[in-house]
Each structure stands twice: as structure tokens, then as C-alpha cells.
Amino acid sequence: MHVKASVFLIFCGMLFAVSAQAEDKPVCLIAGWENPASVCVAHTKTIAATCYICHGPNGKSSGAIPALAGQDKAYLVTAMKDFKAGKRETTVMKKYAMGYTDSEYEALGEFFASIK
């Protein structure tokens, strides 16, 4: 009973968050799924750390693969959208762009823009 009630409460809370767009919403979305805000913080830093493997630790490149650190957010988001749409020539980035969501492009753009 306790579990059911909790599920119901969370479900209601989620509907409220979605419909009311509360300012202090305790949730964030990953691929359309609701999460506590801390989960999205961890998610963003972890997917950003995936980028480090090719683009260099903290997005700071020492070679041919472009740096991400300190790039303009809008530039990074547009680049990902263009890769996905096939508007921009890529080697691996179209394959990556297709695996991530628009909100993840935004989160990554913000993350790398903040690294100086």
C-alpha cells in the first residue's frame, strides 16, 4: 500500500510539474523521464566526460579533434543539430548527435561554455 501511494504521489507531482512549470521544480528530464535535479547534474557531467575521451580532458584539445572547452553554447548546440540533420559534414559526430537529445545538447553546451 505504501508503495502504491508513493507512486501515486510522485505521479501527481510530476503532472503538476509538467503542467504548472513550477519555478522550484524538484525534477528534471532525461529522455523524457522525470528525475531529481541532482540526477541531471550527475548525468550532464558524466556525458560531458564521455566527450573528453576524444576531445581531451575537460574538453581541452591538444590535437586535431576540436576543443569544446570555452566554446559558445549556441555554437555547440547548433553544431549538434546540424550534425544530426546532416547539414554539416562529419566523421563520427553525426553518429553521436543521433544518440543524444536536444536537452542534452543544451546541457552539454552550457557545461562546456562554462569551462575556461
Binding site: 531529481p36 564521455t50 575521451i53
Partner: peptide
């Protein structure tokens, strides 16, 4: 990449936060 997902999950759990249930692996 797996190492970072595991590290993040352990850090979240040892700080009494929920680990991310939707991790993503990229392989190049």
C-alpha cells in the same frame, strides 16, 4: 566510459543521492 558511469553512481550513492538510472555509453 563505464568507469565514469560507475564513479558517478558511487559518488552519488555515498552522498545520499540517487544514482542516474539513464546512463549513456559512447564508443568510438
Amino acid at each position: 566510459n563505464q568507469a565514469k558511469i560507475c564513479a558517478a553512481a558511487l559518488v552519488e550513492m555515498y552522498n545520499d543521492r540517487e544514482p542516474n538510472s539513464y546512463p549513456i555509453i559512447g564508443s568510438t
